[in-house]
Design a protein around this nucleic acid. Structure first.
Lengths: 216, 216
DNA sequence: ACCGTGCTGTTACAACTGTCACATCAGGAG
DNA sequence: CTCCTGATGTGACAGTTGTAACAGCACGGT
């Protein structure tokens, strides 16, 4: 178990004492797919170091629509945990596991101790928090200024592997902050233009030249 | 000058050695209103502790529209400075002074030293960064799910003092991420409904019951 | 083979937005 | 007072988006 942690968190592993502390105080826990991890407004008691699986962090509006803020994977910390603990505030968003997730949970108090003591974990948390912050600002710009078809295009390019994306229209809508019908409509239009090929639960990108996003 | 810094940054002032260091290495500087402080993509060389005045942090889209992410005032640090320095990345947004600004500038290297050494400044920066992050996430939710009239309503309530807001429609549009015409149109409609009274460069809120935002 | 559930396609429609193109208007500089 | 500039008011319009309301389809389970 030590090996997994050190492999995934090289910046922390640089200090073996720190790793030892984390392992001593941390609790290993698994969550099945689609488990709610926390809700907006909750207080924060632990910080999670992800060993495997993915978590989706999102906001939801009154009408039931959702928008994904960012995702975290192995080697990430759920930075909102850290953020809440360090500013003693509550969660500003929701989080749900996308797949099965294995994580090492560290109690808030222990985390604060380690933050006070070890530069490695401070730097790790700071830079992760900064990165997420930048990402969310970029997302805000997207949402504020770009049309849904452009955003969907970029989404497909980013999310697809080997030009294939396996996801329902509803799931895509929840990531983009729109409704299922809108996604279906736009995808169908892209299919008519020969850009994608649609099937149940799958989208295949065809005409890459039209989809390529400059600057990514 | 010491007194001003300690008065505005009580969390830092708790440690007099820290304050001494900041003053030793910091440079006092004034910026006139409407001075660009940094641009998206710039590298970051200093961190600013605001003594007076206000700075607007915003993103701009291709079409020339802008949206304000948040503002910083006396007692704040431009947290993006810290964020960039600590994650060695570039600015993810733009910043401009709204009024004349007096600030204490601390070189990046000195800031890193102080962050390594003093828990007070770490906690200060962490909690400020966390707060801004929450704010931007809340803003994202707003932009993704609310109509412009609702957002304008909330904006007016938040920004007005004694039910009066002195600003041009263009400035409001730049804060909200829309165009001047849209703001003019919505404001005029609100005036017809008796909610506000418009004049050049000023908006007076009349019917507070209609404007009150729950939860603020 | 049959059913039920969840996913997708589609039509219609009302709102909301962003833009263009002007017309006015207020207030300061000379 | 007169002129200029920046601020506002508006009408027209095309596009985009969100919703509701269904129809049809795919696939797994029995």
């Amino acid at each position: 178990m030590t090996s997994k942690l050190t492999a995934l968190f090289p910046n922390l592993a640089a200090n073996s004492t720190l790793i030892k502390h984390i392992l001593e105080k941390g609790i290993n826990q698994s969550f099945p797919a689609a488990t709610p991890i926390y809700w907006e407004g909750d207080a924060c008691s632990h910080i999670a170091f992800l060993l495997s699986g993915e978590i989706r962090v999102y906001k939801s509006g009154q009408t039931g629509r959702e928008i994904t803020l960012y995702e975290i994977g192995p080697g990430d910390t759920c930075i909102l945990n850290a953020s809440c603990i360090l500013s003693s505030s509550n969660y500003p968003a929701n989080a749900v596991t996308r797949s099965q997730v294995d994580a090492l949970l560290l109690p808030a108090r222990e985390f604060q101790k380690l933050m006070a003591e070890y530069a490695e974990i401070r730097n790790f948390v700071f830079s992760l928090l900064s990165m997420r912050f930048s990402e969310v600002m970029a997302l805000l710009e997207e949402v504020a200024f770009n049309r849904m078809d452009e955003r969907l295009n970029e989404y497909l390019v980013e999310k697809s592997e080997n030009n294939l994306l396996e996801a329902t229209h509803q799931a895509i809508a929840n990531d983009l902050g729109t409704s299922r019908e809108v996604v279906s409509r736009l995808l169908k239009e892209m299919e008519r233009q020969g850009k994608v090929q649609l099937a149940r639960n799958s989208i295949r990108l065809l005409d890459q030249s039209n989809l390529t996003v400059s600057g990514d």
